[in-house]
Design a protein around this nucleic acid. Structure first.
Lengths: 229, 229
DNA sequence: AGAGCTATTATTAGATA
DNA sequence: TTATCTAATAATAGCTC
């Protein structure tokens, strides 16, 4: 878990495993102690060390006995009812990981879509090959985010000018906002892009469409440049 | 443990305690799972939730039963022999903390001593009020560290000059090294001190003793300036 | 209540001593 | 071996939605 990220697999090397065992046993006992104090509950841990005949228990022996007995005297169905068993634990883990993956995929897709949206806006091209529902969704999402941004700055509108000289957000600036938004998105993936890297495209719709020019170009409505996958 | 450092005390607030319980229970179970896989051992956790009738166990019920039985069938003295009970856990914690305190105190003392050593070297004063054994010890330690430093640079001695223009470490430079060492020590406590903050003291021993001059002075063999406690 | 975020603190793997 | 250090990952308290 540190220096290197560690894989959750049996540690084959004897001395490494032993060292890890010692460290983690201490950590586990510490955590058990903490939860029982912080939350005012009873908890016990039983750990069989590498030498099979040597269990380590926490807290004291009588406490463990008491907790164990409390558990054992409970009817079986009661025991199972509230049991957090290994299976459900693993199921939860898998679900969580899958959700995270899903989220990452969505983020990737969003980035791709925003890029594509930008391409369409830039070139006016309509011969696209993506699901137009997806694209619409992204455009709406982007607009929604712009609206949200605007709502955060609205109070200052028309009264105070930002000290950095930025224009207040309003309807007229929507496209510039979109541009900035997309630019922000792209910064994450290809390093910061400066304002001077962009220019108004006078060939497409009369000056209100901006094109980036750097290590890439757009032709036939598609992106030719750094990959974003 | 985060955002704020948290005190190890019962959490009075109901909803906070409940939230903490949930988070930490998951953490505990995760850790239990990890140690058992990584180290190929058997371990179980039994946790009684805030609602007293609802114990949560890990891993599965049969596993817990098996581990418990293994523990219970062991003769009492065996159980106690390898037991990590609450008392010894607390004792260990206290000892560890005390050791850390001791260490910090030693570090403080060392810094004070080095400072004093510097004063003595600077002024040639002998009317000191510290245990001369302590002082001797610190001087020896300092010299040892200087030797160690030298040994690290020795291979380059007389052949390559450092690119930053620093002189190679050798006998002649020992005092300068000592000065640099003490200077380094002091940087930790009072911010960086530059070379130009020091001057050779021509009134004391002919040019090989350096004195700092900034927000402090040395008189009667004692330090008058920032406190180092 | 419960799920998600993130600034912090805590744990710890690997390296040294 | 066992202890200590530290760079890096992991856990999580308080917050927001």
């Amino acid at each position: 878990m540190t220096r290197n990220k560690v894989k959750l697999t049996y540690i084959a090397d004897d001395s490494k495993r032993k060292a890890t065992y010692k460290k983690r046993k201490n950590g586990l006992v510490k955590k058990t102690n903490e939860i029982s104090i912080l939350c005012g509950i009873e908890a016990c841990a039983i750990i069989y060390g590498p030498n099979e005949t040597q269990p380590e228990v926490w807290p004291s022996h009588p406490e463990v006995q008491r907790v164990i007995n409390k558990f054992k005297t409970m009817p079986e169905h009661e025991q199972n009812k509230y049991m957090l068993n290994q299976e459900s634990f693993l199921t939860k883990s898998i679900m969580k990981t899958r959700d995270q993956l899903k989220k990452l995929r969505n983020e990737n897709k969003k980035i791709e879509m925003e890029l594509f949206m930008f391409q369409c806006l830039s070139t006016g091209s309509t011969n696209n090959m993506v699901d137009s529902n997806d694209l619409l969704c992204v455009i709406n999402q982007t607009l929604k985010e712009i609206e949200w941004k605007k709502s955060r700055v609205q109070p200052q509108q028309g009264t105070v000018e930002a000290s950095n000289g930025a224009k207040p957000l309003n309807e007229e600036n929507t496209f510039v906002d979109a541009h900035n938004h997309i630019q922000g998105m792209m910064q994450t993936n290809m390093g910061p892009m400066q304002m001077q890297d962009w220019s108004f495209d006078s060939a497409n719709g009369g000056g209100n469409v901006m094109l980036p020019f750097r290590d890439y170009n757009i032709s036939n409505g598609f992106w030719h440049g750094p990959s974003f996958h």
